[in-house]
């Protein structure tokens, strides 16, 4: 696929940062507002798919390799399981929320029954890990399918 016209490319270039920032917002505020790692990751992956459609898969293929995407996905999964094992080591149980109600990162105590961006213990960290995993995984699926179906037309 050669990519679409200049108008489509320009609009995709304008829209891509907005979509990405919105998706990262949904991931970062997953413990406060509706959303979370999966939903925000799907939003960011759809923005990347928009780029792939507008600019053509060969352009995207020259920028990013699917090998790196699968490595990122494994990194997200390892972060998720590593946080769970940290709960086993420090909190005494698998998936224990060992950061809550401490003075460490993300460990503040909610005031008046309302959480804030720095509360939640391991929940925001797990949201980041799962978001990274979903972004890399879904974009790897889209990219691999697009590349495979393009090679046939050539």
């Amino acid at each position: 696929m050669k990519g679409m016209s200049t108008i489509v490319k320009t609009i995709a270039n304008i829209g891509f940062p907005i979509i990405t920032i919105y998706g990262l917002y949904v991931i970062a505020h997953g413990h406060l507002t509706p959303g979370g790692g999966f939903q925000g990751g799907a939003i960011v992956a759809s923005g990347l798919a928009l780029l792939a459609v507008a600019h053509g898969t060969s352009w995207v293929e020259s920028k990013v390799k699917e090998h790196d995407l699968s490595m990122l996905e494994s990194l997200g999964a390892l972060g998720f399981i590593g946080l769970a094992f940290l709960g086993l080591l420090m909190g005494g149980a698998f998936f224990s929320n060992f950061l809550v109600d401490t003075s460490m990162l993300f460990g503040a105590i909610p005031v008046d029954g309302a959480a804030n961006i720095n509360t939640g213990g391991t929940l925001p960290l797990m949201n980041f890990a799962v978001g990274l995993k979903v972004i890399a995984g879904l974009f790897a699926i889209v990219l691999v399918m697009a590349i495979a179906t393009n090679k046939e037309e050539d």
Binding site: G30, H31, L32, T33, P34, G35, G36, F95, N97, V100, D101, G107, A108, I109, P110, G113, A114, A115, T119, G120, G121, T122, L123, M126, N127
Partner: peptide, 17 residues
């Protein structure tokens, strides 16, 4: 939810904790 996990979103606290 708010007291134990420090999260406002109940669904996220169920999913991850």
């Amino acid at each position: 939810t708010v007291g134990e996990t420090g999260a406002n979103n109940g669904v996220t606290s169920v999913v991850f904790d």
